[in-house]
């Protein structure tokens, strides 16, 4: 059996955070997933995750909301 990938780990983290209603953790986990997808050049997928990260950061009043927003703007998504 293959070792779990970074995406498997993030999937688990995201699901757990949804279950716990932990907005800050959701923002962090979606943001990490977005960065990982961006690093491999998958911009469309990354922007989906940046959107998720942005929304949960915005709701929680976290400063990283602006970073996610900036990336989305750079890619014409906001």
């Amino acid at each position: 059996m293959a070792a779990p990938s970074v995406f498997d780990t993030l999937d688990a983290t995201i699901l757990a955070a949804h279950g716990a209603g932990d907005g800050a953790e959701l923002a962090y986990a979606y943001g990490a997933a977005a960065d990982a997808h961006a690093a491999r050049g998958a911009i469309d997928v990354a922007c989906f995750f940046y959107t998720q990260a942005y929304i949960f950061a915005l709701e929680a009043g976290l400063p990283q909301a602006e970073r996610y927003a900036a990336v989305l703007r750079q890619n014409g998504r906001l």
């Binding site: 469309d44 922007c47 989906f48 959107t51 942005y54 929304i55 915005l58 998504r77």
Partner: peptide, 13 residues
């Protein structure tokens, strides 16, 4: 303030 995915996945306008 935000309308996530309103223009399609990852498109927020």
């Amino acid at each position: 303030k935000a309308t996530p995915h309103v223009g399609g996945p990852g498109h927020n306008t």
